[in-house]
């Protein structure tokens, strides 16, 4: 269980990036963060994994409060998936996945790249879960496509058996077809490992399709929190503002029929 209790983060210059947010996310939930740029999504993620410390309020991960002292330890229990992936291009797919668990291994094993067999097996299982094949196992990730690289990043994030996986716009640079299958892989893997996922997205239609729960933010506050079925046209206006210009193209692009299906 991840709990945020009246969390506020004020940046220098008196910008309230996150304003008095209280929310709790049960283990294993696939939770999507929506909201326009600057709504405070990235700050909220930073607060969860201890990269950003709250000005007031507290973040509690399975009964342990996140603060300056246990920052490092908390970070080992939380994995990040970045938009820019940050994979190591010249290492193989297998080694990139294994690199998600370096902290738990003795130094000599890391220096010699000599990984225990059960770790390697787990990496293979995760890669299979995100639909990658053995033929690519020892290939450099720089030789893979964008979608495949994002899958490797997902597998790496789950390698250390984290309690939470934070994904910051994981499909921002992928085309729609690939985006869908990558998100499906992320969801599948999270369900397989019973891991909580907090994933920020710009595309409302993907959120409707994959989320167990949608949390929408605007100007540092939560403006919507509920299952995708409850997201309506008026809620979207509430999140992104009335002007169409502020909405991502995806909202306008979602055909009415498809949305009705999703809402049904």
């Amino acid at each position: 269980m991840l709990q945020l209790k009246s969390v506020t983060k004020v940046y220098p210059g008196n910008t309230k990036a996150v304003n008095d947010i209280t929310v709790s996310i049960p283990n294993g939930e696939f939770c999507v963060l929506l909201g326009p740029s600057g709504a405070g999504k990235s700050t909220l993620m930073g607060l969860i994994n201890g990269l950003v410390l709250p000005t007031s309020g507290s973040v509690v991960l399975n009964d342990e409060q996140v603060d300056a002292r246990n920052q490092k330890k908390i970070q080992q229990r939380i994995s990040m998936i970045h938009q820019q992936l940050h994979l190591i291009p010249r290492l193989s797919m297998l080694h990139n996945v294994l690199s998600g668990k370096l902290y738990a291994l003795p130094l000599w094993r890391v220096l010699a790249k000599h990984f225990p067999e059960n770790d390697q097996r787990r990496a293979c299982r995760l890669l299979a879960e995100v639909d990658l094949t053995e033929s690519q196992l020892h290939r450099r990730v720089s030789a893979l496509s964008g979608g495949q690289q994002q899958r490797v990043a997902i597998a790496r994030a789950f390698m250390a058996r984290p309690e939470i996986v934070l994904a910051d716009e994981p499909v921002a640079s992928l085309d729609p077809t690939v985006s869908r299958s990558v998100l499906a892989s992320l969801r599948h893997t999270s369900k397989q490992n019973n891991t909580t996922v907090v994933c920020s997205l710009h595309q409302v239609d993907y959120a409707l399709e994959f989320a167990d729960r949608i949390i929408a933010m605007r100007e540092g506050k939560i403006v919507f929190d509920g299952p995708p079925q409850r997201v309506s046209e008026s809620e979207l206006t509430n999140i992104y503002g009335s002007s169409d210009d502020h909405k991502p193209a995806a909202i306008k692009a979602v055909p009415q029929i498809e949305r009705e299906v999703a809402l049904a």
Binding site: S79, I88, S99, L102, Y103, V110, A160
Partner: peptide, 17 residues
Amino acid sequence: AALKASGAGSLKVLRFA
């Protein structure tokens, strides 16, 4: 940064990233 964030020490990051 990604490996550091996952809790890996400097030498390990040096070796891997």
